[in-house]
């Protein structure tokens, strides 16, 4: 199947001169319709910047975002409009992503009318009510005339999803979409998003720092791990979680606190050579993980950037030194 979104050598730099940082460095991946891909990594790894470039909110310094086979920079205005509607983004903070002076009715009906999805106010209202039901804000009549501040964080995030759905998207970038929602509510939002996947054929790029959530949401999909602007490993979720090959992925998985006391006390301890993450302003040469990596090979890792190579078990790994070695994350 042809990818719905593909990025090739996507690079984003901010600032200039000595202050310049490369937030995303030559990232390439393709996502097919119906897939669920999680982009994971710590703060500063470039996952959100990548998501924003995919959604067209940020222009790449170099490289391409390809939508249905065409570079988005070369789309004519009608095709570009279709791209902007097909690809939607849901932000982390539902407190700042909704206009506080508008009612939910205004927030949902405005894009419906603006993009001629419905004709007339009453049709817009009917559709808005429908969409609120889709995101489990029921009964929708009780919600539609409220202001964002009258809703909980979880409910606001549902409104943000309903608003994204107004333009019939086929690809949603969810950037830390449940990070600010209370633990007990998170799963219901994930389940709702998973339902959209089935009912509306929506493909997800789910960006999160939370590996446990990534595992859960993309259990049948893929995970892509970023570190300091580059992809270090990707692959089918079940392979990546049980058999990670890049030392950074291994370090990350072994470091995740577990909500289970026995698991918590049986996790392998991976000792890094340096606890601190390097600054984007002074990135190490070669593999950017080398100053921290327990398997560092002098003269190799600190010289050339290791390429992402295909792994027979699925996915790609940017570590020629360790990609053939399995380790157990539990001891």
């Amino acid at each position: 199947m042809a990818p719905i979104i593909e990025v090739r050598n996507l690079t984003k730099q901010f600032g200039k001169g000595a202050e310049m940082v490369t937030a995303v460095d030559s990232v390439s991946f393709a996502i097919e319709p119906g897939e669920t891909v999680c982009l994971v990594g710590e703060s500063g790894c470039g996952k959100s910047t990548t998501g924003r470039m995919v959604a067209g909110l940020l222009e790449a310094t170099s490289g391409e975002v390809i939508f249905e086979g065409k570079n988005i920079k070369q789309l004519d205005s009608a095709a570009f409009r279709r791209y902007r509607q097909t690809v939607q983004i849901i932000h982390q903070d539902p407190y700042s992503s909704l206009n506080p002076t508008q009612t939910i009715r205004q927030i949902i009906t405005a894009p419906l009318l603006r993009h001629n999805k419905v004709k007339g106010k009453s049709a817009a209202e009917a559709r808005a009510l429908e969409l609120l039901e889709v995101v489990d804000l029921t009964p929708a009549r009780d919600v539609i005339d409220k202001y964002p501040h009258q809703l909980s964080g979880g409910q606001r995030q549902r409104v943000a999803v309903a608003r994204a759905l107004t333009v019939d998207p086929k690809f949603i970038v969810a950037d830390e979409a449940v990070s600010m929602v209370d633990v007990s509510i998170r799963v219901s939002i994930l389940t709702m998003l998973a339902r959209l996947k089935k009912e509306f054929d929506v493909t997800f790029l789910f960006i999160t720092h939370d590996l446990a959530l990534a595992k859960y949401f993309a259990w049948q999909g893929r995970i892509t791990v970023m570190y300091l602007g580059r992809i270090v490993e990707d692959g089918p979720t079940q392979r990546l979680i049980t058999d990670p090959r890049h030392p950074y992925t291994q370090a990350l998985l072994s470091a995740v606190p577990e909500a289970d006391p026995e698991l918590a006390h049986h996790k392998r301890e991976i000792e890094l050579r340096d606890a601190e993450i390097p600054s984007l302003l002074a990135l190490p040469r070669g593999c950017t993980f080398h100053p921290r990596c327990p398997y560092f090979v002098a003269g190799q890792c600190d010289v050339a950037v290791p390429p992402l190579e295909a792994l027979p078990e699925g996915g790609r790994v940017a570590c020629p030194v360790r990609m053939g070695e399995r380790i157990s994350l539990l001891v």
Binding site: S152, D182, S184, L190, L211, K215, I241, V256, E258, L330
Partner: peptide, 24 residues
């Protein structure tokens, strides 16, 4: 029980999760 069933682990088995309905 609701909190535990709402939170995934990374190294544990795959488990169906459930939210707690309603809000605090």
């Amino acid at each position: 029980l609701g909190l535990i069933r709402a939170v995934p682990t990374v190294s544990g088995g795959f488990e169906q999760l459930f939210s707690i309905p309603g809000s605090p």
